[in-house]
């Protein structure tokens, strides 16, 4: 057992616990805080995977901006305890076991996939962290057009949010 494995399992446990908490919490604000926990744990995992830039973006944009937006809307709408409603019989006895079956199948496939086993032996992965300078060069050369397209996307999103959320005259 080395430090990386221990760190991985600690963060994985935190992330899964946060996701379960998101499902179990009745108050939306508790779910939001659980989701922040998941995002923080994932940021540490990105650091572990050697992607410090993505880890920083994860904390700043996801855990910072997006979750603040969520918490803001929850407070604005005064969202309280969610109501419980009955599920249909088909969903309860058919959907839930099938969902778990699908999850198990995906996990099993991933664990035994050629990619997973090949990399487990250390093939193809380098030890040093991903170079942020290299990443930015890629972003502004090879992916320049998508990058510029996202700025238009953000602009349209701002306009859409403004139009949707404003009060009717």
């Amino acid at each position: 057992m080395n430090v990386a494995i221990i760190m991985f399992f600690a963060c994985a446990l935190l992330a899964v616990a946060g996701a379960v908490l998101l499902i179990l919490a009745r108050e939306p604000i508790h779910s939001a805080l659980a989701l922040v926990l998941v995002m923080m744990a994932l940021a540490v995992l990105y650091l572990l995977l050697g992607a410090p830039f993505i880890a920083a973006v994860q904390i700043i944009v996801y855990a910072g901006a997006i979750m603040v937006l969520f918490v803001f809307v929850i407070m604005l709408l005064n969202a309280g305890v969610e109501e419980r409603t009955d599920f249909s019989k088909i969903a309860k006895f058919g959907g839930v076991p099938l969902g778990f079956l699908l999850l198990l199948e995906i996990a099993h496939w991933l664990y035994h996939s050629p990619v997973g086993t090949a990399i487990a032996n250390g093939a193809g992965s380098s030890n040093e962290a991903a170079d942020t300078a290299q990443l930015s060069e890629m972003l502004f050369r090879q992916y320049l057009f998508p990058f510029e397209a996202t700025s238009i996307l953000i602009l349209i999103a701002i306009l859409g949010a403004l139009v949707l959320a404003r009060k009717e005259q």
């Binding site: 080395n2 990386a4 494995i5 991985f8 994985a12 992330a15 899964v16 996701a19 379960v20 998101l22 499902i23 998941v38 995992l45 572990l48 995977l49 050697g50 969903a91 959907g95 969902g99 699908l102 999850l103 995906i106 996990a107 991933l110 664990y111 996939s113 990619v115 997973g116 086993t117 990399i119 487990a120 250390g122 992965s125 380098s126 030890n127 040093e128 962290a129």
Partner: peptide, 26 residues
Amino acid sequence: MMSAVPISYYLVLSAILFGLGVVAFV
């Protein structure tokens, strides 16, 4: 050592989180 954790562990964690997301969605 950074690459000590097998990549498959990350993929399994990703699948579990995605599954929990689907469960929460439903």
